[in-house]
């Protein structure tokens, strides 16, 4: 009944075939080609010849070349990691607060839940431009409000000043993706049996004790899974930074760096080497996180 030649198994592979062929064509093959281009001196749109690891690191006449010798690459790695850690941390804390609020019973809860979906649904490019306008150094509403409240004495060039540019990116990302975090955590909260909280309250535990001793341990798994998906999304950030601050070095992410080399400089070899490095870095970080955090990747939250 369960041999490999079972007709059922054969039809399973037949049913899978169209999807697998398409996925191999649009994801598998292009990924392999990208890795290959990384080992060639190809220009954009042309075939190149094999150059080994020269695109990664090479030494000619005592001078170092390649992605790994490029200070801009390392800055983009630092920017991306900093952005990922800071934005995902803030989103997790805020998402938790929003989820706890939405878990309480009040009139209009359904409407509020719908309203917080708006930032999630607005295209990233559009939200970047909306915030670009709000963060405008001369005519922006944020500077105007802060000046009126007396919190700052002169306008801040949010997206142009290297000291604040990456924070501007974080602000927009937090605005856009906290709803996702909150909804996932809320779904986790609503799975918990109410009796546990009753019991804790009868035992005389305060709200904070209940949260840290009862709620948090019970939803840890949900939070960890939500965090990894947010982190993977943050590690590949492109749209937001490209539109908010263009190709500025102060905010350049790894994806922006790779596309800059690949398309703007037409350096298919260098760009593909950088893209391959991103793929490797993200894979390694993911495996580490899953192993160290003991996350069970059963199902996928979207």
């Amino acid at each position: 009944m369960s041999g490999p030649g079972r007709p059922e198994v054969r039809s399973a592979w037949l049913l899978l075939a169209p999807m697998l062929v398409v996925l191999a064509l649009v994801a598998g093959w292009p990924l392999l080609r990208t890795v290959w281009f990384g080992f060639t001196d190809a220009r954009l749109g042309g075939a190149g010849s094999f150059v080994g690891f020269d695109n990664y690191l090479a030494n000619y006449d005592g001078e170092w070349f390649g992605v790994l010798a490029d200070r801009l690459w390392w800055q983009s790695v630092r920017n991306t990691l900093w952005f990922t850690v800071v934005s995902v941390s803030i989103e997790t804390v805020l998402g938790m607060v929003v989820a706890l609020v939405l878990d309480a019973a009040f009139r209009g809860r359904g409407l509020v839940r719908a309203v917080i979906l708006i930032p999630w649904a607005i295209p990233t490019v559009v939200s970047a431009r909306m915030w670009n306008w709000m963060l405008h150094d001369q005519f922006g509403i944020l500077n105007d409000a802060l000046l009126r409240l007396g919190l700052i004495s002169s306008p801040i060039a949010w997206t142009a000043d290297p000291d604040t540019a990456l924070w501007a990116v974080v602000i927009v990302d937090v605005w856009k993706t906290t709803p996702f975090m909150a909804l996932l955590i809320l779904a986790g909260l609503q799975m918990l049996p109410r009796e546990i909280f009753e019991a804790a309250r009868i035992d005389g535990a305060g709200p904070l004790t209940v949260f840290f001793r009862v709620t948090l341990p019970l939803i840890r798994q949900v939070v960890m899974v939500a965090m990894i998906f947010r982190a993977l999304d943050a590690l590949r950030v492109f749209d937001l930074i490209y539109v908010l601050t263009a190709n500025s070095a102060a905010t350049m992410s790894m994806s922006v760096y790779a596309r800059l080399q690949l398309i703007d400089f037409q350096e298919a070899g260098i760009g593909s080497a950088a893209a391959t490095l991103i793929f490797v870095v993200v894979s390694v970080l993911t495996v580490l996180y899953i192993a160290l955090g003991r996350v069970r990747l059963g199902e996928r939250p979207w």
Partner: peptide
């Protein structure tokens, strides 16, 4: 594999897709 493809950085397939 499906999960991995949906989460990997899209820039990793950019030059391969461009060629395709």
């Amino acid at each position: 594999a499906c999960l991995a493809v949906s989460m990997f950085p899209h820039v990793a397939v950019l030059s391969g897709l461009f060629e395709l």
